[in-house]
Simulated scan of single mutants.
Amino acid sequence: MTAPHGRAVLVERPGVHRLVERPRPAPGPGEVLVRVFAAGICLSDREVYEGRRAPGYVRYPVVPGHEWSGTVEAVGAGVARDLVGRPCVAEGFRCCGTCERCRSGETSLCTAGYAETGFTEPGAFADRLVVPARLLHLLPERADLRAAALLEPAAVVAAAVRAGRPRPGERTAVVGAGTLGLLATQWLAASSPAALAVIEPRAARAERARDFGATLVLDPANATAAHGEFDLVVETAGAPTTAASACLLARRGGRVVLTGMFAEGATGIDPVHLSLNQLELRSVFGASSAAWADAVRAFATGLLDPAPLVTHEFPLDRFTEALALVGGGDPTVGKVLLRP
């Protein structure tokens, strides 16, 4: 009997990909096989395709896809069989679970070496993928799996919220109104801020932030008057100037959390401003297990709803068309999904 086959987008090397057929993956001990429902495309996937991801943070050939949702289809040895049929997402970082950082709960700082689904391990631009069962987060039985594909960026936002510690009545700002920025706005709105500003140069994106809870939208060119006004600033854009500008927005003694992925040559943060204003500065790369749990809980209870962010859906064989939309500058493009 011929083994069942599936399909996957394989990036062989920068700029070169194929839609391949392959035997259905088999979960090994401690692993689960997931049928992918949807997988989101983000700018880091475009970086992988174009060869712009930093060395050591990608391994070619690779099946990309780190934002996804699906259903457990099979389990390997040592994994509870009642997981089969359960809707789920899973953490991307393949943390070791035993180093000092992991044992301290800082799983995104694992010292065993970088490994992540969709970058160094096969990802979800496929109809199925295999992940360690210990990284699964189960969803409610009737969860919206289309929206759940955005739980990876939601977990990054959860990590930022954990680091920023918003308190009711504070003045809060979000820099950027992309996927991370709008999710951060929606989450921070739930903390009852006195004001929630979103700084975004694209007018259509900025106005959309109001639907996610923003009370004020500002163009960066007009944000100078707001310098020093905010207790908490969450930066999500990763643009060349936004790390520095986020620090200028914070009040003396304020808190700044950087979540954007910056490229070489970005504007540096003024150490004099940082020290004289006694700012608390944190950065986020990925999400810990605790942040994932926060995101899944917020989604399950309805506090966080990523569904309105999805604007486009494509099958695997239209990967090139889907990828071209991501980062293309069209303000009407939100989250783009691949639907195997």
Rank of each mutant, 00 (worst) to 15 (best):
121 E>K: 13
179 T>P: 01
59 R>Y: 06
228 G>N: 08
52 R>W: 04
153 P>D: 05
62 V>C: 04
28 G>D: 08
110 C>H: 10
161 V>K: 01
108 S>W: 11
215 T>L: 10
139 L>R: 04
225 A>E: 13
329 G>H: 06
102 C>V: 05
136 L>R: 08
67 E>C: 02
100 E>R: 15
65 G>Q: 01
204 A>H: 08
137 H>P: 00
320 T>D: 14
76 G>P: 07
91 E>W: 02
220 P>G: 01
144 D>V: 09
303 L>T: 15
212 F>Y: 14
79 V>K: 05
319 F>C: 03
192 S>E: 15
301 T>N: 13
252 R>H: 10
69 S>M: 04
255 R>C: 13
29 P>C: 04
97 G>M: 11
306 P>V: 05
221 A>N: 08
146 R>E: 15
170 E>S: 00
339 R>K: 12
190 A>M: 04
199 I>H: 04
101 R>V: 00
325 L>Y: 08
34 V>R: 06
20 V>S: 01
189 A>M: 02
195 A>M: 12
318 R>L: 11
189 A>G: 08
224 T>C: 06
305 D>R: 15
249 L>Y: 10
127 D>T: 14
293 A>L: 05
66 H>C: 08
308 P>K: 01
29 P>V: 12
190 A>Q: 12
291 A>E: 07
334 G>H: 04
91 E>V: 03
325 L>W: 04
200 E>N: 05
258 L>R: 11
